[in-house]
Design a protein around this nucleic acid. Sequence first.
DNA 1: ATAGGGTTAG
Length: 629
Amino acid sequence: MNFCSAGITFTLLSSRYYTSATSSDQALNLLHFLKLSITHQSPKLAQQTHARILALGLHQNPFLGTKLISAYSNFKNPTWARLVFDSVELKNVYLWNTLVNGYVKNGEYVEVFEFFKGMCRGDLFPDDYTLASLAKVAGETGDSAAGKLVHGRSIRSGFALDVVVSNSLMSMYGKCGSFGDVRKVFDEMPQRNVGSWNVLIAGYVGCGDHGLDEGMWKIVKCMQIDGVKPDGFTLSSLLPLCGVDGRKWPDYGREFHCYIVKSEMELNLDSDAHLGCCLIDMYSKSNRFVVARRVFDQMKSGNVYTWTAIINGYTENGASDEALNLFREMQVRDGIEPNRVSLVSVLPACNSHASLIGGKQIHGFAIRKLLNNDVSLCNALIDMYSKCGSLDLARRVFEDDSFVKDAISWSSMISGYGLHGRGNEAVSLYDKMVLEGVKPDGITLVGLLSACGRSGLVDEGLNIYSSAIKNYGIKPTVEICACVVDMLGRSGQLDQALEFIKNMPVQPGPSVWGALVTASVIHGNSTMQDLAYRYLIELEPENPSNFISLSNVYASSKQWDVVAKVRTMMKEKGLRKEPGCSWISVNRTTHCFHVADKAHPFSNSIHEMLENLIFVMKDAKCSYVEIPS
DNA sequence: ATAGGGTTAG
């Protein structure tokens, strides 16, 4: 459509019709074409009009000059914008402001303050438009000193009374991390609009852990008392806060959705689907991905962001099949090319399927699209390769110099070694990480401690635990403590594990008691087992896995009466557990196995092989082997 | 007739 309209207008442009018009009429018409070029996103039309302007000798017309600069800036061509600016002899404040704003839009922040100086050297005074742009630059670059200068100048010149200038200043303070100043500017504003409230809310969200507390709600309430209606921007700031902690904000997400529907807000306004994405994301995060899907299906036009949001929703909810299907559909049906985020979102779907081939295809795509220098993507690849069984390929991504490794890259690789039972390598990689000056975080520690636990490296693990907490200020989380309990427990030190739980710096959660349960079952300590189960079931009375595990323990010691009791209890509570299964992909076919499953055509030979393997393992004095029934 | 702020999707 764009090209078409550009073609038609060009025909008009070069027709004889214009030759008889006066020069001011011509200028007006050319201005119109420049506007069209911007609304239709046609750089070609802008260039053609520019040629016409030059041919007709209208290039000193300030209106045309300004529009040209604005058009070229919109088409990400600040160099040409600058050339136009230089060619206009009498530069007015509009021309300056448009160029400055063009630089801002294209992220050329360094130039802006130089320009500002140049502007002040002439006879021109920076006005409210200039100040708004400057404030934005200070915010984007996090330069609070510059921001304060802009603020001072705004006050002295009286432009701080302007709503947009003050909004920009607030936004600047928010980006510089001083929420107090955001609030101060807001409170002192003589008049506010919905944008002012939005900056305040965004600043409040951005300043961290206040996100969920009362203050946020007070702001939203005050906004309504003030008679300002929340708009799409407001809601897209608020929606990400919903669904994260369902306990505090039970159904606000749904209420916001209702509000959006009632006020007839468009989910994909102006081809921007941000609001729709926020809804999809919110529903996915609150485990309501059926609703998320409905929102997705109802949106008129999907773009790469909406597709990515819904794919991400499916992967996070463990629906890998659906995620992979959608990933395909997005490309085949809608012809949308996945971006960096889409790839990062879909990769975990390969993990749970152990789909090495799918993961490799995505890796190949990333290389072709030159996306493989992105940390997040490489981290996802490391994770995918190690979870799909190929530690070597994971290591190859990790060793590649084409991306800058962060703490997550190291943690992923360390966990990979852990998953493959190579605790010693995990530990030495951790040592290297520390040596290279990369600060480990809580996630690193979880990966490393579980690696130690799996490989029986108890003393190493305990040393690492205490040194990490002391030297790197890592807060011992429940997950970390659960790893320590697991480590101690698996090695048979059940009493020490219990002692650790008693003195733990955080409240022991289900994962902690679960670790103790597993350990006591392995080591046949029924006293400890009963104690751990009691806590576990008290904490998670609705989790069917706990009851199944309890019943399995009694089943293995043939205490069928207790088994029956547990099963009845589950029935009374209405708890059901999807049976777990394992699968393996051989020659692109995935074979799935449940407990005691004899359905596979080669079941007999599989079991025969399994028994051989168990025999070999027992002979090799492997610590414990679960014998399948 | 010409110019400005608010979200950036894991």
